[in-house]
């Protein structure tokens, strides 16, 4: 479960996607997410899934890796899917026996939902796998720039996000340590009902939270000591630049997605 947090971490490489500007990748990821939720047919979703596996492999992420990252998501999705399965309404899957309790629409819908989530997670993790946290922040900051006019502290938000990214592995590490120190917690943590699990989390969550607060305090002091907020304008490094790679990647992905939408409409209409 804790390993799931480190899923989708940056893998260095020189693939086309690596060389793409973070802004292009963020926008493409957004379009991708919208499309994942608008397509109607499982065929299109499967096609998208295969493509994202393929691209991930090209970007230096082995298939095994991608699959392992999906495990907790599938597990989570299955729980939700079960509710759909029994309370979906409509005709049943069979006349009698256990299957007569299962709604046919529900079964289809839950399968589609699991598929959607899988495609979504796997596709968007391509963004984090090929972009360093720093350039990601730069990209987000650039994209949020228009909000600055409405008084949104974009620079501070970007700093906050990059701090969060920096400290996620530390907090995961701390949680692992705490789990190790309390073997019995860790046993309860992975057994029992949801409520039991939630309760057994408490001795873990409280010291973890206290640790985060303490660290935050020390961090703020250390940032002060290094002149944070001393100047109106921080120096900006690595100004982002669009290049031919972005046109190529953007063009190919958009063309592919449009084609997919067309086929999807066709399939949905034909069915």
């Amino acid at each position: 479960m804790l390993n799931a947090l480190s899923h989708g971490r940056y893998i260095s490489g020189t693939s086309l996607l690596h060389r793409c500007d973070p802004r292009t990748k963020i926008i493409l990821a957004l379009i991708f997410s919208v499309i994942v939720y608008t397509v109607h047919t499982p065929q299109s979703l499967i096609l998208l899934l295969l493509c994202s596996f393929g691209i991930a492999q090209r970007a230096g992420r082995p298939l095994r890796h991608s699959l392992r990252g999906l495990k907790p998501i599938v597990y989570l999705a299955s729980i939700t899917a079960i509710t759909h399965l029994f309370f979906g309404g409509g005709p049943a899957l069979a006349e009698s026996g256990i299957l007569s309790f299962v709604s046919r629409d529900g079964a289809g819908r839950s399968l589609l939902m699991i598929l959607r989530l899988t495609v979504l997670i796997n596709g968007t993790s391509l963004l984090t796998v090929t972009t360093t946290p720093l350039t990601m922040m730069d990209g987000l900051q650039w994209l949020m720039k228009p909000l600055q006019r409405f008084g949104v502290p974009v620079g501070e938000i970007a700093m906050m996000m990059s701090l969060a990214l920096r400290f996620i592995p530390v907090i995961v590490e701390e949680a692992k340590q705490l789990l190790k120190n309390h073997a019995e917690i860790s046993r309860d943590f992975s057994n029992g009902t949801m409520l039991q699990r939630a309760r057994s989390c408490l001795p873990l969550v409280i010291p973890l939270f206290a640790g985060v607060v303490r660290r935050g305090d020390a961090l703020a002091t250390a940032m002060d000591a290094r002149c944070y907020g001393a100047c109106a304008e921080r120096t900006r490094m690595n100004p982002l630049r669009f290049s031919s790679v972005d046109i190529l990647c953007g063009g190919v992905v958009l063309a592919f997605l449009s084609l997919l939408m067309y086929i999807d409409c066709f399939l949905a209409g034909g069915a």
């Binding site: 990059s162 701090l163 020390a218 250390a222 000591a225």
Partner: peptide, 11 residues
């Protein structure tokens, strides 16, 4: 500062 973990901010 004393503790390096609370003064390294970046990736």
């Amino acid at each position: 500062f004393q503790n390096p973990d609370s003064q390294l901010f970046s990736a």
